[in-house]
Design a protein around this nucleic acid. Structure first.
Length: 878
RNA sequence: GGAGGAUUAGCUCAGCUGGGAGAGCGCUUGCCUGACUUGCAAGAGGUCGGCGGUUCGAGCCCGUCAUCCUUCACCA
């Protein structure tokens, strides 16, 4: 293998071929019979309706991070891929395609239409799989599932039949949300409510046999052909005299009774409500109470039917317009007010949803919802991250309505119910009745969420509870999804799982937000502000995209797309690339496999970086366990860029340019050891580039994806490590001070020597021969400005006296005085702050002792610094 | 009407159990220093939305107000 890296990180070159390599190695294959502890994540199955968007990329990247980390940490890890048939959404797409050819699904017939739908599915499934590969998701394709697979379909049937037999599924005539475009029923949450400017129409309902009338207001005038009564409140004195009489429907003069019902609010509108049981859920209830008829006045496609008389066949909105105009002409309109109200729209077709009387299948929710709520108080609870989403979930569960699950579609799981051709008897079963020729199966299919509700266990070969998959990987470990589908999906998985397996479907559910466009708005097709993740990958690489997506927000928060940040992520990777390049150039053929740190003599820089590395690994582990990947990023970023690149690599240049071979070997080992740990820690986030670097420095044959996670390892006895850490921190601070004083550029290593001020620092330096090598050769101490340290300055350093560099001609004295004055001012403020804090008796007595001690130490430190700065200032002023 | 979130540097956002405000980008100044100018070094910039409260101590806890956003329900 070529052991050199280009000067520049080329994401396209680095990412090419890696995914195939992983698949070839079977790196992602999970063995359910393994003895190892198990970890499993099922992918939220994307709809086979189209390509993946940035939201998917975010969601799946999070999962892949968790899964790759767990795999490296020694778990038998399953990341299960799969897709959702997405009933109404896919059917709408297929129908749209057919429409372009001028045909409808009815022209084709059910069977042919389903063929077309399967073709569509295959087409988009392959697009999606390519996108998963591009993103580098470590999915086990041998376990791939689709919601319409035979196994999953059997699970669906079993659940339906069992729920029916338990009385938790029923068929009934109810007001449902009707989508006249798709011509199907919808569940409540598939309806999107939008504020629409409509009108409040006030009509005269003439009291039969009089010239008096009741004023009735409505937002949907066309439904009056379904009116069977008008209602007033039983205690509304304004209308007692007309109760029991008839009023005439303005549209056709038909008499209907005036009834009383508590449902009417006296203060709203006119206090008179038209009752249309077949077109309004509240009116339906009123109708039931009063045993009223339930005439339907519209066809399924949203046009008026024969009840509407002359408006028969007209679209409901055209009929509304004409009806109002006609009534206006007839003098039956009191007024028309503008009225902003929310109108339900179909989530998929955007058609205005019509409340419509229809016979449908429902899941009875109260008992299962209650069980889910109770379960959250048990040890089997689902751990929501962030926790606040548990309240969202509970609240929804506590206010839930029955779930309408039948859909008048073809693409989906056909309902396993048959009706007897003669008796009308209902048969529900996984298999068709024996004398099937006498029966007709329900034409409808199930809500697509009915099958996704079973996803965590139906994908694990359930209902075979003895299956290896089920036993090994269910309940799953973590589910990752957006807060927008807690109701649709998360909650339904929870209650079905509890009902059928007595287990939670997943231990944790990590909730993330939405990806927003750069302007803060939702990304949407209509706004044209969407960003294709594949374009981002092309430009910056999947590694950059993944890192950006997963480290730039806190759990549960939305993420604004920000190309500059992706760019800076790219720069970070380039930085890692070049640190690797430096390392490899200096390893002289050594690999991480050759590293043996036992018994080596470490210099201060080695101790520093190894201690820091250990602290970083701990912080990464701690935060990753909490899914705080933004925090993980901050630890990794500063460790890599600051500690490793800016300090360790710079300091490593000293021994590497020296003559002490042992010191060089130690440095090489520490470099290789640290870099290997770095790429492993980063691998879950940026799998491609870390694989590339690992291949060059690890000396290992296998992929980094199956390598062992860096262990927390304390090289030095605790105090020693801490002491070293403090010492190097002091030096770093001294160097920083020096940089501020001397405007000329200098190598960091050299500056470390000239800035030694105390016996302790000096002692430390003497211990570190690699540095002293250069220190003992004053002729090399030529600064870039041409300044050479004089012999007397050298001896001043060695005796530990305070050193003042001869800065004349090197430093702008005026500017330096200004700067030092400012610093002195800051220090004075600090001293003042510390003094007053310690003078506060309450602080001293109530605050933890440790803290008070720290304050005292800090005060002493600041006082010393102030004295020093003042002295320098004085010296400069002379 | 119910529930939840946001408000921190010019911009985009972090800030985990209360103990001296952080990052990236942008900006200023100086540098091609033997991995990296996609870089190096130094720096400026914040009464943490307002007002109360709890506390020795509040960006963080409590109350309240304001602005923005989500979501559920209702809307004859």
């Amino acid at each position: 293998m070529d052991k050199n890296l280009d000067t520049k990180y080329d994401h396209l070159k680095v990412e090419a071929g890696k995914y195939d390599y992983w698949l070839k190695q079977d790196s992602f294959k999970a063995d359910p019979t393994s003895d190892k502890p198990k970890y499993s994540i099922v992918i939220p199955p994307p709809n086979v309706t189209g390509k993946l968007h940035l939201g998917h990329a975010w969601d799946t990247s999070l999962q892949d991070i968790i899964v790759r980390m767990k795999r490296m940490q020694g778990f038998e890890t399953l990341f299960l891929p799969g897709m959702d048939h997405a009933g109404i959404a896919t059917q709408a797409k297929v129908e749209e395609r057919l429409r372009e050819d001028g045909i409808s699904r009815y022209d084709l017939g059910r069977e042919k239409f389903l063929e077309k739908s399967w073709e569509w599915k295959e087409e988009y499934a392959s697009v999606i799989k390519n996108q998963w590969a591009t993103l580098g998701l470590s999915l086990d394709y041998s376990k791939e599932r689709f919601t319409l697979d035979e196994g999953l379909s059997n699970a669906v049937k079993k659940v339906f039949v069992d729920l029916y037999n338990k009385g938790l599924i029923y068929r009934g005539e109810r007001i449902i949300n009707w989508d006249p475009a798709a011509k199907t029923a919808l569940s409540d949450i598939e309806v999107i409510h939008k504020e629409v400017e409509g009108a409040f129409y006030h009509f005269k309902y003439m009291i039969e046999g009089t010239s008096d009338y009741l004023e009735v207001a409505t937002t949907r005038p066309e439904t009056m052909f379904g009116d069977v009564a008008v209602a007033v409140h039983p205690e509304d004195n304004r209308y007692q005299h007309v109760v029991g009489k008839n009023v005439l429907l303005p549209g056709n003069g038909k008499p209907i009774p005036v009834i009383v019902d508590e449902y009417v609010e006296r203060d709203f509108g006119t206090g008179v409500v038209k009752i249309t049981p077949a077109h309004d859920p509240n009116d339906f209830e009123v109708g039931n109470r009063h045993d009223l008829a339930r005439p339907v006045c519209m066809h399924l496609n949203g046009t008026m039917n024969e009840l509407a008389g002359k408006y028969d066949g007209l679209d409901r909105f055209i009929a509304r317009k004409q009806l109002v105009a006609d009534l206006e002409a007839a003098g039956l309109v009191v007024k028309v007010e503008k009225h902003v109200h929310s109108v339900g729209h179909s989530e998929r077709t955007d058609a205005v949803v019509e409340p419509y009387l229809s016979t449908q299948w429902f899941v009875k929710m109260t008992e299962m919802a209650q069980r889910s709520v109770d379960n959250q108080k048990s040890d089997n609870k689902v751990n929501f991250v962030p926790n606040r989403f548990e309240h969202t979930f509970l609240q929804w569960m506590e206010n839930i309505h029955d779930w309408c699950i039948s859909r008048q579609l073809w693409w989906g799981h056909q309902i396993p119910a048959w009706y007897h051709n003669e008796t009308g008897e209902v048969y529900v079963g996984a298999d068709a009745p024996a004398d099937v020729e006498n029966w007709t199966q329900d034409e409808d299919v199930l809500d697509t969420w009915f099958s996704s509700a079973l996803w965590p266990f139906s994908t694990m070969d359930w209902p075979n509870e003895e299956a290896d998959m089920f036993k090994a990987f269910f309940p799953t470990s973590t589910l990752v999804t957006g807060y927008d589908i807690i109701f649709f999906w998360v909650s339904r998985m929870i209650f079905t799982s509890l009902e059928f397996t007595d287990e939670r479907p997943f231990e944790n559910v990590l909730i993330h937000g939405l990806v927003r466009a750069a302007d803060g708005r939702k990304m949407s097709k209509s706004l044209g502000n969407g960003v294709d993740p594949m374009d981002v990958v092309q430009k910056y690489g999947a590694d950059s995209l993944r890192y950006f997506l997963t480290t730039n927000s806190a759990p549960g928060q939305d993420l604004r797309y920000n190309e500059e940040k992706i760019e800076s992520t790219w720069n970070f990777i380039n930085k890692i690339w070049n640190a690797s390049r430096f390392t490899i150039m200096n390893l002289d053929g050594m690999t991480a496999a050759d590293v043996n740190l036992e018994g080596r003599t470490f210099n201060i820089a080695d101790k520093f970086i190894l201690s820091k590395l250990n602290a970083t690994i701990k912080a990464v582990n701690y935060n990753a366990e909490k899914f705080e990947f933004g925090e993980v990023d901050r630890y990794l970023y500063s460790f890599i860029w600051e500690d490793f690149c800016s300090w360790y690599i710079e300091m490593a240049k000293v021994p590497m340019s020296g003559v002490n071979e042992e010191a060089k070997t130690t440095t090489r080992m520490v470099l290789a050891y640290t870099l290997e740990a770095i790429v492993k820690l980063l691998h879950p986030f940026m799998p491609f580039v870390t694989e590339e670097i690992y291949g060059l420095i690890s000396g290992a044959e296998a992929s980094i994806s199956v390598s062992a996670w860096p262990e927390e390892r304390t090289f030095f006895e605790d105090e020693h490590a801490v002491a070293n850490f403090t010492l190097i921190s002091d030096i770093i601070k001294s160097v920083r001070n020096m940089r501020a004083e001397v405007e000329a550029p200098m190598s960091k290593a050299i500056r470390m020597y000239v800035d030694v001020k105390t016996e302790r620092d000096l002692g430390m330096l003497k211990e570190n021969a690699a540095y002293l090598e250069r220190f003992c050769n004053p002729s090399e101490l030529t600064l870039n400005t041409g300044l050479v340290l004089a012999e007397e300055t050298m001896s001043a350093v060695v005796t530990g006296a305070s050193v003042l560099l001869p800065m004349e001609g090197l430093v702008n004295v005026e500017a330096e005085i200004t700067r030092l004055s400012a610093e002195a001012k800051k220090l004075e403020a600090e001293v003042k702050r510390g003094t007053s804090k310690l003078a506060n008796e309450k602080f001293v007595s109530k605050a933890p002792e440790k803290l008070v001690e720290e304050e005292r130490a800090k005060l002493i430190d600041y006082e010393a610094k102030l004295a020093e700065v003042s002295a320098r200032l004085e010296a400069l002023k002379k």
